[in-house]
Amino acid sequence: MEKDMDGPGDDLLVKQAKEGDVEAFSELARRFQQRIHHAILALTGNLQDADDLTQETFMQAYTTLKSFKQQASFFTWLYRIAVNLTLNFLKRKKKEKMKEAFSENLSLELNSEASVHSPEQNSLKKELSTKLKEAIDFLPLPYRVSFVLVVFQGMTHGEAARILRCSENTVSWRMHKARKILQAKLKPYLKEGRDET
């Protein structure tokens, strides 16, 4: 049983939580809630949605904890729940999103036309940051999830693959494709930035 400086190890807490120890589960939640929330927030881009989905993640983890066979780490298992819930949530919102995407892409095109020719480099920098956020939000879901886990959560391809239940090679290709899309979308802004430096 693993133990660390901050108290009992995850395995022990999981065992206690399985037996119905609410305190033990609350401690597990305290340990992982910020990272889970951060990943969900990066995927949804909305604080309220992130809050709801993080709560739902822990609720589901608590109710199904007895089925957790501890073959993977609790952290990986928890992430799987969070990613699945978030993906389902985003798919449900897909129609709405597509409508938004259409209008925002339209404005992106119009703005990019204007900004490329803008003489103000500071506004270009700001614009790049904004456009990057938008471009990440509009990445296809499998690419976005991989990108968030690897870039924002600092995971290795192997760790992301275990959560997404796919091969490392798949994560590697998704990362490459995601970067290709981002580079294509941000090309005008990147060019300006390079000229500036």
Binding site: S26, A29, R30, Q33, H37, F58, M59
Partner: peptide, 12 residues
């Protein structure tokens, strides 16, 4: 957040 979560799981 923790307080709300604890209240929810206690009621399950």
């Amino acid at each position: 957040f923790t307080h709300r979560l604890k209240a929810k799981i206690s009621s399950i």
